[in-house]
Write a protein that binds this DNA or RNA. Structure first.
Lengths: 249, 249
DNA sequence: CCAAAAGTGTTCATTCTACACCCATGG
DNA sequence: CCATGGGTGTAGAATGAACACTTTTGG
């Protein structure tokens, strides 16, 4: 409805008699909008999250999710990409919206509602060492997370849940793994995200039956054991399964 | 980050030198926030959606989703419940957030970002005839929907997708069916929502194996065929499966 | 030859699917 | 006794879990 008769009558009840557009601006256009990003990374068999250490009040010195206010003439998803770009230098990250958080008292500076996003990064693709990242930004192990500022604990928890549901029902990994990877690596990724253990043989059968991977006919080199066959994702099949979905686990 | 060093430096780049909190209010607190609800109903084997006919500009005369602006001191979910209450008279509807829509130009009156919700109603529980509902509110068949105002087409489509995923992975129906119902009714509901056909015997086995229903030892009356056994949901099991999830279809 | 991880095959149990069949009621 | 929808049983296929086994590399 937004501003039809119904809203109008509401407004009249509250004794405004000036034209509708002005009313809206005075009374309703007082919200701040921000974006908070839960950036998942994967490195050395561990699921990681990108956190920042706050350098200013409120919550100075506390850990928090990277985020920023959205500019009045900026689309939300553009703001999300901007934040990630500034933070990591990477331009086209996979990102998806999670939920909106709009409790009246969630932000001490006023009525700021925030949109959660989650993103996935293959850390090894982009220099995992601190120097390449913005100041005060750190990768934290997912199972050793500190308390976070604001309602960021909740935002993070919701994002993990959504990531896990997502992993079970559509292909993911493209964004977290190197272009060429071994099946064991894919298995380790699933195990890290879902916090489960799978049988090697059965895992392989499940994945292969999705017909999602391309056998690159290449082998690992220099490993002190039988080298693994390398695969990459079939982009067409990947997109198809993203739409149609599948079931894993 | 929201307003730490990072944001601060951004602000300084744009030549603000007043204290941070003031800057925020002047420059950033200009957003309007609204809620738009996709209310699904189920009646006579058909999935329905509640739509309103807009009585004022913009988009006067066009169909739209019910929605309203959020008050500056009102929580978003409270606003959503308020809208549904005013519209339907029902107080505690099942509602869940879908996504946020924040394109700069999505609303002609200014920068209004909107939060999508979907809700489920058993129409027969609440007088499906027009009179009981607010003026200009109508149930429309899901497969005969008109074009909608704003970006409401997209909001509605996203909501259906989310509803469908939801139905496949947790129990739903409690909210759409009468307290006592026959298995065939539950099957028809699933078929309406997912737009599929299921084998009667197999559908029953799937549902019964979830151990979700209570056999009321009651029968339909006055039907011109063998009367069906009536069931209701086991609330405990229902809540459990909502958390743990299951897989259907 | 050994350790370590890659990769495969088989068995058994469980679940899914299709379809045929019987049952209770009103007219 | 018939039409209508309720309700059940079963055979065969497909899938999944567990686990043992073979293969290939470096040291």
């Amino acid at each position: 409805m937004e501003e039809d008769d119904y809203t109008k009558s509401k407004l009249q009840q509250t004794n405004f008699s000036v034209p509708y557009y002005e009313i809206s601006y005075e009374k309703f256009f007082q919200f701040g909008l921000s974006v908070d990003c839960v950036v998942f990374g994967y490195h050395e068999k561990k699921l990681k999250v990108l956190l920042i250490k706050r350098g200013a009040a409120p919550f100075k010195g506390k850990w928090a999710l990277p985020g920023d206010l959205v500019y009045p003439n900026e689309n939300i998803d553009v703001a999300a990409k901007r934040i990630l770009k500034d933070l990591t230098g990477i331009n086209n990250l996979f990102m998806e919206q999670t939920l909106v958080y709009g409790q009246v008292d969630r932000h001490p500076a006023g009525r700021v509602i925030t949109t959660g996003y989650y993103a996935l990064i293959d850390i090894s693709k982009h220099d995992p060492s601190a120097s390449a990242w913005a100041d005060g930004v750190y990768w934290m192990d997912f199972d050793e997370l500190p308390d976070l500022a604001f309602d960021h604990d909740k935002i993070l928890n919701d994002a993990v849940e959504i990531l896990r549901t997502s992993v079970r029902h559509k292909p993911i990994g493209f964004e977290l793994l190197p272009v060429k990877f071994a099946l064991a690596q894919l298995q380790e990724l699933y195990e890290a995200i879902l916090d489960e253990k799978y049988d090697k043989a059965n895992f392989r059968k499940r994945i292969v039956s999705q017909d999602l991977l391309i056998d690159l006919k290449e082998m690992q080199k220099g490993v002190p054991h039988r080298p693994a066959r390398l695969y990459s994702f079939d982009p067409e099949k990947y997109e198809l399964l993203k739409k149609k979905g599948f079931s894993f686990g």
